[in-house]
């Protein structure tokens, strides 16, 4: 029942996204096909003669000469049938190929760091209001909380300056060293890892505090509950009270937030990937936007909507396990 609702919602969102994607470029005065052909002609040294014909030819291929409502119906139909079409800017690559190529880079860095930040930040936040927390917690937490106020990419800039530019310990950007070809060798893996350190660090530093802060708020509430007093009166060990009674009860909103964050991981990545010229979905999206490649833009959006929808579905399934009291609504 719940799943069905979610699916319906996803269809609606994809439909809205498809509509916006259809509408926006047609409202603007730029012609991407013309720009693309002009650019490629410029590169190959060809003349501007015959560009009109070339454009017309291309537009036929993309179906742009048909009546608007047919184009709209096609767009929506394709969207619903998982047909993402062909990229304009990377012609003749299929959008799905490009998206699937970029996906592992983004997921590798963003997913790992988001989860890591969650795993570190959540207990840290809980410890700030735990009476018997180690001393270092109160020294560390204010720092990570202030860092949480600063956007990822600004921290990224500082990290580049310190570790790449001044100390030269790590590369400034890109997914792997430029001389290498992607393969399963140790050298390549090493290159990928060293290139991932700074982007990962910037996300970690900026987001641990976010998790710590929200967890602290929840933990304060939980600390005041009667069951925490009873847990102590039962003579439970401190660790059990902290994890099973405290954190366990405070964590439900955190998990919701985690899922929503994971769902939005790609857009969060755009600027970080841009700062580090990282070859992920964010960079791809950025390229697509600059070149006005709406098929590619839509491909990325599509991916996002799928991630969001899928994440929410997972949340629906997981939530009853986290909180036995809630069997129905989740995101409220």
């Amino acid at each position: 029942m719940r799943i069905l609702q979610r699916l319906l919602m996803m269809v609606v969102i994809i439909w809205i996204a498809a509509s916006i994607n259809f509408l926006m470029p047609r409202l603007s005065d730029r012609n991407p096909v013309e720009e693309m052909i002009a650019a490629s002609m410029g590169e190959s040294g060809g003349t501007m003669e015959g560009i009109e014909e070339a454009v017309a030819d291309f537009e036929r291929r993309f179906g742009m000469d048909r009546p608007l409502w047919v184009q709209y119906a096609n767009t929506v139909y394709d969207a619903m049938t998982f047909d993402l079409g062909i990229s304009i800017s990377y012609f003749p690559d299929r959008v799905s190929t490009l998206v699937l190529q970029a996906l592992p880079w983004t997921m590798g860095v963003m997913l790992t760091t988001t989860l890591l930040a969650f795993v570190i930040g959540t207990p840290l936040g809980a410890l700030t209001v735990w009476p018997r927390a180690p001393k270092w917690v109160n020294a560390v937490v204010p720092i990570v909380m202030i860092l949480a106020a600063i956007p990822f990419y600004l921290i990224g800039l500082i990290l580049i300056y310190v570790f790449a530019s001044r100390l030269s310990w790590l590369p400034t950007g890109k997914g792997y060293a430029s001389g290498l070809l992607p393969d399963w060798s140790w050298t390549f893996a090493q290159s990928v890892l060293t290139h991932a350190v700074l982007p990962a660090m910037s996300i970690l530093l900026a987001s641990i505090g976010i998790w710590a802060l929200s967890m602290r708020g929840m933990m304060v509430t939980v600390q005041g509950e009667d069951y925490m007093v009873f847990a102590k009166a039962k003579g439970l060990k401190g660790s059990r009270r902290f994890w099973r009674y405290g954190v366990r009860n405070a964590i439900a909103p955190q998990v919701t937030a985690l899922v929503l964050t994971l769902a939005n991981v790609v857009t969060g990545a755009v600027l970080v990937e841009r700062v580090f010229s990282y070859p992920g979905l964010g960079s791809l999206l950025y390229q697509a936007i600059l070149l006005n490649d709406y098929y590619l833009i839509f491909g990325c959006v599509y991916m996002l909507v799928l991630t969001v929808g899928f994440s929410l579905m997972v949340l629906d399934l997981v939530y009853p396990l986290i909180d036995p009291r809630i069997r129905t609504s989740v995101t409220d």
């Binding site: 009667d226 039962k234 909180d323």
Partner: peptide, 13 residues
């Protein structure tokens, strides 16, 4: 110890 506030003395999860 048997607590006051029976409503909230048990761990809800």
């Amino acid at each position: 110890y048997i607590p006051q506030g029976a409503m909230n003395s048990l761990n809800p999860v």
